[in-house]
Amino acid sequence: MNVTELSGTYTYRSFLELPDPVDDFNKLRFAQAELKLVAAPDGSVNGELILSDPGEQPLIVMDMTGRASASSRVSFTLSGRGRPPIADFHYEYDGIVLRHWETGVDQRKILAGTVLRAEPHGGAPAGQTASFLAVRRDGV
């Protein structure tokens, strides 16, 4: 796989790392957003993480920058920094592109990894982690 195949628009979802089963899946929700990435042949990655309510104007945007590399799988690291009014947001991401099954049906490109709150903001301490999945959208 070529690192440029990371480019695209994804539905991003991150999850709190709660080890016990929950009775309501929403209790695991950390964030849901639109992730837009552009990966260059040299491995540089740029994009945006856009948090909004479905069908609404963007509430907050983080600029994403990072690097991708390819061996047997594409892996990537990203740093997300908020635009005003969330300029104090700083998150770090580490992920991979999951396997595409040769016999899979309707499989989409999936990014998976972990996210770290790198700096405190709004009373939330630095250091919190979450898991994420990002599902590639059609035609984008």
Rank of each mutant, 00 (worst) to 15 (best):
L6S: 07
D138E: 14
G8P: 01
G82E: 07
P125T: 05
S7F: 03
D94F: 05
D88I: 04
A68I: 01
L16F: 11
F89G: 07
V140T: 11
L16G: 08
I60L: 10
D24R: 08
G139E: 14
S69E: 11
G80M: 04
P21S: 09
G127I: 06
H121G: 10
R83T: 06
A134R: 01
M1R: 11
A126Y: 05
R99Q: 08
R13D: 01
L18E: 06
T9R: 13
N26C: 05
S52N: 14
I86S: 07
A87F: 03
I96N: 01
D23T: 09
T4Q: 11
S75Q: 02
L78Q: 12
L18R: 15
I60V: 13
I96H: 04
D138P: 13
V22P: 01
S7W: 03
T65P: 03
D63V: 05
D106A: 13
F76E: 08
P58T: 04
F76A: 04
L78S: 09
E5K: 06
K27N: 08
A118P: 01
P85K: 00
E56H: 11
G139N: 14
R108N: 10
A130M: 03
G104R: 07
Y93V: 12
A130R: 02
A112M: 10
G104F: 06
I50Q: 08
S131D: 00
S79C: 09
T103K: 12
H121M: 08
G82A: 02
S71L: 12
L28R: 15
D23E: 11
S72T: 14
E5I: 00
R99M: 07
A33L: 05
F30I: 06
A124G: 06
A130I: 03
V97R: 04
P41F: 01
Y93I: 07
N46P: 00
E56R: 08
R108P: 02
L116Y: 00
I86V: 14
S44T: 14
L28F: 15
P19A: 12
P125F: 02
R137C: 10
P125S: 10
R117I: 15
E119V: 06
L6C: 07
V38A: 14
A31S: 14
G127E: 03
G80D: 03
K109C: 13
Y10N: 03
L133G: 12
R83F: 05
A87P: 04
D53T: 09
R136N: 12
V115E: 08
S79Q: 11
G113P: 05
S52M: 08
I96G: 01
H121Y: 07
P84L: 08
S71D: 14
P120G: 15
Q107F: 00
T103A: 11
R99E: 10
E56Q: 12
S79G: 07
A134C: 02
D24S: 05
F76N: 09
V45Y: 03
P120K: 14
L37R: 04
R81G: 01
G55P: 05
P85H: 00
F15Q: 10
A118V: 00
R136I: 02
T65A: 14
L28I: 14
G80N: 05
G55D: 07
W101K: 08
A130V: 02
L16Q: 13
R81F: 02
R117E: 05
S79R: 12
R29E: 13
L78P: 09
A126T: 05
S71N: 13
L18C: 04
A87Q: 14
D88M: 12
L98E: 11
A33H: 06
A87N: 10
P58E: 10
V45K: 08
D53H: 08
V45M: 09
S71P: 03
G8K: 06
